[in-house]
Simulated assay, not measured.
Amino acid sequence: MTAASTVVTEAAVKALLNEQTTVRVRPRYEGSNICTWIGFKHVNYMVEEAVLDHFRQVGMPARALYEEHGLGLDIVALDTRILHAFHMDDLAEAVVAPDTKAAKAAKAAKAGKAGKGGKGDDNTVALRVTINVERDGVVHKAVTAKVRVSLRIDTYLDSAGEVPAELARFAVARLGEQREAEPRLPFDTEDGILDQLLEGKNAYGWTWHIPYPYCHFTERLQMSGYLRLMEEGKDRFVADRGISIKTLLDDRRWIPVVPRSEITILDEAMMEEDLYITYEVEEVFKDFTYTSRMNFYVIRDGELLRTATGTIVHGYAVIRNRRDWSLENFDQRVLDAVNGDGIKGAAPRHW
């Protein structure tokens, strides 16, 4: 694609915001960490691939948007529910449906219902993704996800192209700029930041130097990088509480399962900045699941700025054999560890 007009047209943008697309997706081999089941991070990668393909199918692939117009395609919000587990080598069908006001109005009109017309005031590309998988001849709805996309104007290179008028309302100079500005948090010393963020909370935290493999478009941490950190947060937290992943695997063949995860990018975290990360238990539901909040901060102008926030719901399952598992209720040992009962916990680690 050499001419800008071949990348962005009025018809292409209309299709992006109104037409449904489907694509076949498979989980990556890397995501099969225990037996042949696929972890939540790689399920979200499948959602991401479906979104990227939606842009491809309407004629505006991420590469062309960046190379021709200087627009970086960034997923800035992701809310995913996992209804059925994925296995290695599963071939699934992902359906991507626009969730903008215009799409909702068109859907209502098609169904003969009253709906608000017009383009609406959406300032992100809102999409819903459903992933279906076949089991023993029956098609199951395995994943539902709500996704929001921003088109970040490239400011790193001087040769960035002009933003097409058709996409102007989705183009931002900084991720999160359409949201209310995050309050800055003062701190006394950098060494005391984690102690300040964790004080009085059932939480764990660590400091992490952002490496380039977690970034994209030359400078900023991308959504998949945050997903990797969410997975790492669980691993660090349970290890700190004495119920590490391997400990429960060896003791009772228990593995963590994630029925839901969600994360929103509030501002930008840049390559080689230090990221201050907290993992806080917000709620324990009976003895079945617990929800943890993860927050991510960087230092800007001498204060702390939160760049992303999200939650992850965890439960446990027992491995029955190489093919099957079943959900388990927490025992007292796990409940005490998650609740922090009788556990002082290690000092916040700086890794």
Rank of each mutant, 00 (worst) to 15 (best):
M1H: 13
A4S: 14
A4C: 12
T9M: 04
T9D: 01
A11K: 09
A11D: 13
A15F: 02
L16M: 11
Q20P: 00
Q20H: 05
T21G: 02
T22I: 05
V23N: 00
V23D: 00
R24S: 12
R24Q: 10
R24T: 11
R28H: 14
G31I: 07
N33C: 13
K41C: 11
V43N: 03
Y45V: 04
Y45F: 13
V47H: 10
V51D: 02
H54A: 07
R56F: 12
A62F: 02
R63G: 11
L65N: 02
L65C: 02
G72Q: 03
L73E: 06
D74W: 08
I75N: 01
R81C: 12
I82Q: 05
L83F: 05
H84E: 04
A85F: 06
D90V: 03
D90S: 02
A92G: 01
A97M: 14
P98G: 00
P98I: 02
P98H: 05
P98Y: 08
T100G: 01
K101Y: 05
A106G: 07
A108E: 11
K110W: 06
A111D: 05
A111S: 09
K113H: 12
A114S: 15
A114W: 14
K119F: 00
N123I: 06
L127K: 04
V129T: 05
N132L: 11
R135H: 13
A142C: 05
A142R: 04
A145S: 14
R148L: 06
R152G: 02
T155V: 03
Y156M: 00
Y156F: 00
L157R: 01
D158H: 05
S159D: 08
G161M: 10
L167S: 02
G176E: 01
E182V: 03
D188F: 12
D188S: 15
E190T: 14
A203M: 03
I210D: 01
C215G: 07
H216M: 08
H216S: 12
H216K: 12
F217Y: 09
L221V: 12
L221N: 08
Q222E: 13
M223Q: 15
G225H: 12
Y226I: 14
M230R: 06
E231Q: 10
G233M: 06
G233R: 00
D235A: 15
F237W: 11
A239T: 15
G242F: 05
I243L: 07
V258C: 14
P259S: 15
I265P: 04
Y279Q: 02
Y279H: 10
E280V: 05
V281M: 08
E283P: 06
Y290A: 07
F296N: 03
V298C: 13
R300W: 11
R300Y: 12
D301M: 00
G302Q: 12
L304H: 04
L305N: 09
R306K: 15
R306V: 07
T309F: 09
G310C: 03
G310Q: 00
T311S: 06
A317Q: 05
R322W: 08
R323V: 07
E328K: 08
F330I: 08
Q332A: 15
V334T: 10
L335E: 09
L335D: 08
G340E: 06
D341K: 09
G345A: 13
G345K: 06
G345E: 08
R349D: 13
R349M: 15
H350I: 13
W351S: 14
